[in-house]
């Protein structure tokens, strides 16, 4: 089932200066879409346009469901204010806002759902802990749990693993990958890690800052050594062995290993 359809959408903040050529893209249930591109290419702006936070400069963002799909969102560098005296569960429960509307209060079913999502990211034991007492990686996982508490049809993660160590990053992306299968939701994640996109995404969107172009397609067709080298302007080598993607960012050692797919 289609969730969102971008038709010839121009993206940017100034009408006379779109970030790249118009983009057409359909997001369907079950898609696991990786968005890659160098710094400043417009990855977050693309995400914000899809989420309705930034209006498109031209073109249309179609809603095949005749309504906005239910969204779960983790913003880039999402480090909410440490000063707020909120528990991990209270932060997670904010994910119910779209279901509860402005006036309803969370019921026990909402709390149970939030706890289940915390359990899914391995933090149920810290539900009562102050959110600000957690490490950056743990906070990021709480924000993912909050996004899942929204029971999203489309989960949007803008650099979700930027605060995480490799093990936590792999665990989170594995979780997201399993959710795509078990809950039949669509996931779109922005990443700087070529290996993360190579290992987990079924499709990728490549934003080329120099050429101001966008390419969308199956991961294995687009994530090639030649294409990545051109995109980042430095030698990148990608090898696929036994279902794993290995990525070298420069001649020599592989500095990032992709997950199983």
């Amino acid at each position: 089932m289609d969730l969102l359809q971008l038709k010839e959408v121009s993206i940017g903040y100034r009408r006379d200066r779109p970030l790249f050529a118009p983009i057409s893209l359909t997001i369907r249930q079950g898609d696991l879409l990786g968005i890659l591109g160098p710094n400043g290419a417009g990855k977050s702006t693309l995400v914000k346009t899809l989420l309705g936070l930034v209006p498109p400069l031209a073109g249309t963002v179609g809603l095949p469901l005749q309504r906005r799909p239910r969204l779960g969102y983790v913003a880039q560098g999402a480090r909410p204010d440490f000063a707020y005296p909120l528990s991990v569960l209270q932060v997670t429960l904010m994910g119910r806002a779209a279901h509860l509307g402005l006036l309803k209060r969370p019921a026990s079913a909402d709390r149970a759902l939030a706890l289940a999502q915390l359990d899914a990211v391995g933090l149920a034991a810290l539900a009562a802990a102050p959110f600000r007492s957690l490490s950056g990686g743990q906070q990021q996982r709480v924000l993912v749990a909050r996004a899942l508490t929204a029971e999203p049809e489309l989960l949007v993660l803008d650099e979700p693993t930027s605060e995480m160590d490799p093990a936590a990053e792999h665990a989170l992306l594995s979780l997201v990958s399993s959710l795509v299968a078990s809950r039949n939701l669509a996931v779109m994640f922005v990443t700087h890690q070529i290996s993360a996109a190579a290992g987990f995404a079924s499709q990728v969107v490549l934003l080329d800052k120099a050429q101001r172009t966008v390419e969308c397609g199956p991961t294995e067709a687009l994530l090639t050594s030649a294409r990545m080298s051109a995109l980042y302007g430095r030698p990148v080598e990608i090898r696929r062995e036994n279902g794993r993607a290995l990525v070298w960012l420069s001649a020599g050692e592989p500095n990032v290993q992709g997950g199983a797919r």
């Binding site: 999402a78 909410p80 904010m94 806002a97």
Partner: peptide
């Protein structure tokens, strides 16, 4: 009393609150 939850979400994380439908 009516809007405390929305005031809190909008203060704590305005961008995600907007995506979640909080005005």
């Amino acid at each position: 009393a009516l809007f405390f939850r929305s005031f809190l979400f909008a203060s704590f994380d305005p961008e995600t609150a907007r995506v979640s439908g909080v005005p």
